[in-house]
Amino acid sequence: MQRVNMIMAESPGLITICLLGYLLSAECTVFLDHENANKILNRPKRYNSGKLEEFVQGNLERECMEEKCSFEEAREVFENTERTTEFWKQYVDGDQCESNPCLNGGSCKDDINSYECWCPFGFEGKNCELDVTCNIKNGRCEQFCKNSADNKVVCSCTEGYRLAENQKSCEPAVPFPCGRVSVSQTSKLTRAETVFPDVDYVNSTEAETILDNITQSTQSFNDFTRVVGGEDAKPGQFPWQVVLNGKVDAFCGGSIVNEKWIVTAAHCVETGVKITVVAGEHNIEETEHTEQKRNVIRIIPHHNYNAAINKYNHDIALLELDEPLVLNSYVTPICIADKEYTNIFLKFGSGYVSGWGRVFHKGRSALVLQYLRVPLVDRATCLRSTKFTIYNNMFCAGFHEGGRDSCQGDSGGPHVTEVEGTSFLTGIISWGEECAMKGKYGIYTKVSRYVNWIKEKTKLT
């Protein structure tokens, strides 16, 4: 034993070699072989497995989906700052455009905790909710729209109204504003409101030439003092309507412009014939205590009207009353817009006519005020429907199939267009061939041609 100890002390290297040989010859039971080890760690190889990531292109799944990435790591994937920024906006807080917040056709661009709407022409605001041009839906104005110097929408209202708090709607500024039905039992019968379409306001006024200088022999019209197929109006439903009495009662109609003036057809009036105007009328054979009678003290036909040349060209006249009318729910003026808007309103496509005229061709006159909704007829169809001249200051309205029309005794009465609950004068009943005849239409004086003249002559002093 002493000898062994001496050998170990003198030859430590020998001992180490012996131990190493023993270990190498022993069977290893701690580690699995290569094949079995792979069965336990069965993990798919990654895209760049075996390579240094710093030297390969980034992978979106590896960089940002398996674990949260930084902007720089995302930049490695896209290799483009702009594309990385677009991805980053949604990656950080989701897609803010998912709810489609942009209105009126706006395009949404996502941002971090926010979004941006790219608005089409005519709109602005956070969600493109603000109209900035009158060309689109009248700028959301209830009545009139004008573009300011910086191309912003400025709404306005006709006389007797003021802008509401929203700067879009119009509200009454006087007790009985024009064009409004205020009798409670008839307010439910107000005709369907007309909503502004998209309009090209630059070209809204037709490029028409008034044929002022045409000389033409007097034409022989049949029954051209021209509501057939209409309905009984309720008291106060058309408070701007008046009836004219002269040699015979209810020979023509008219509309209240203001307390002192009536507008009617020029062919209705004769110099030297006494005319009485009755406002607030409903049943011409009954006294309903809503009527107001006034005498006409002055007749002003349009300066281009000449019955000797043509009885229905420039067929418009103004009547001055001896005493002002007292405005109330049964006696209310009709609204008159400017030339541009009167023309736009007419193009809405349908209007209402009213009167006490004959209820059928050569038949009896109506006792109760009649009204009828009539569609506008395109000019080409209008011209083809008659052998008589249709001037540019006239328009056609009615039904091709016949059966409904204005008729004798309705002449001078109103053709009105309702705009968001307020009625505007767009025409004056003038003439036609018979009444409600198939293929024939009622012919009306186009008020847009005469609004400046009306307003100039009827100013209240």
Score class of each variant (00 low, 15 high):
Q237K: 04
F78N: 15
F87S: 15
I275D: 02
A207H: 12
F176Q: 06
C145P: 01
F388C: 07
D338I: 03
E27T: 10
R226T: 13
C155D: 00
E433M: 07
R162I: 11
A250K: 07
T84G: 08
E53D: 11
V269M: 08
F31G: 15
G105W: 03
Q96R: 15
K339V: 10
G254Y: 01
I262R: 01
K188F: 11
D131A: 04
M65H: 11
P235S: 06
P375M: 13
Y330A: 07
D131Q: 09
K152G: 12
Y161V: 01
R384M: 11
T81K: 14
N166Q: 03
C117W: 00
T276M: 07
Y371D: 03
E165Y: 09
A308V: 09
F78C: 04
I262C: 03
L376F: 09
K459E: 12
A192F: 08
P324R: 05
E35K: 09
N5A: 15
T190E: 08
P333N: 04
V326N: 08
Y441P: 11
N135Y: 06
N313L: 08
N147P: 10
N393R: 03
M437Y: 13
A397H: 01
G246S: 12
L321N: 00
F196E: 12
E281A: 12
S70L: 09
A207V: 09
N213Q: 09
F224V: 13
K274V: 07
F221K: 13
P197L: 09
Q90W: 07
G432F: 04
T271V: 07
G58L: 10
N166D: 05
P239N: 02
K188M: 12
I336T: 03
E288G: 06
T186N: 12
P120V: 05
I443R: 04
Y450F: 04
T215H: 05
G349N: 05
L32Q: 14
D111M: 08
E67L: 06
R226D: 10
N304D: 11
G58K: 13
L346K: 03
P172C: 03
F224K: 15
H303Y: 14
K234N: 07
S350C: 06
V377Q: 08
F238I: 06
S350D: 08
F176C: 04
V374R: 04
I15N: 03
G349D: 14
G246T: 08
S411T: 14
S148G: 07
I309C: 06
I210V: 14
E281T: 14
N393M: 03
P120M: 05
I112F: 14
V56I: 11
A279D: 01
N203H: 10
A308Q: 14
D33S: 12
I40C: 05
I454T: 01
L52H: 15
V174A: 08
C145L: 02
S25D: 05
E320I: 00
L60R: 08
D111N: 08
C128R: 00
Q237V: 07
T158E: 04
D33K: 09
F360C: 10
D223E: 08
S156T: 12
D212F: 11
S448G: 08
R46T: 13
D223L: 12
Q408V: 07
E418W: 05
K247H: 10
K459S: 15
S385L: 10
T461A: 15
I334G: 00
K274F: 06
G58D: 14
W453E: 00
E208Y: 14
P301T: 10
C335W: 00
P177Q: 01
E165K: 12
Q2M: 13
E433L: 05
V242K: 00
S406V: 05
S182P: 06
R404T: 14
D322E: 11
T332W: 02
F399A: 08
I334L: 05
C69S: 05
C155T: 00
N313T: 10
S11F: 15
H34D: 11
A149F: 10
Y161H: 04
N203S: 09
E72V: 15
I309T: 07
H267N: 04
C335V: 00
F348S: 14
S204W: 10
I344A: 13
K293H: 09
S411A: 11
A317I: 02
E320K: 03
E320V: 01
I316K: 00
N245I: 13
F360G: 09
G58E: 05
V326M: 13
D223P: 13
D223M: 12
G280R: 02
S182Y: 09
N283Y: 08
K247T: 12
L130F: 10
C170L: 00
N452K: 10
Y161T: 01
V183A: 13
Y444Q: 00
N304F: 13
S184K: 10
R162H: 12
C28A: 11
Q408C: 12
V154C: 05
N127Q: 09
Y22H: 06
R162D: 08
N38C: 03
K339A: 15
G442K: 07
P235A: 10
S25E: 05
D33E: 07
F424G: 01
A233F: 06
A279T: 03
G349I: 02
P414D: 03
R43P: 13
R83F: 08
S187Q: 11
R358I: 06
V368E: 10
N42F: 06
T85F: 05
G351K: 02
L32M: 15
N127E: 04
Y341G: 04
E72M: 10
Q96P: 07
R226E: 15
G280K: 02
V92D: 14
R62M: 10
F71D: 15
M65Q: 12
K446R: 09
A173R: 09
T332L: 12
R364S: 12
V56N: 15
D315E: 02
N59K: 10
K446T: 03
D212A: 07
R140N: 15
E67C: 04
T426Q: 00
H267S: 11
L32V: 12
V331W: 00
C155I: 00
T186C: 05
G402Y: 12
P12C: 15
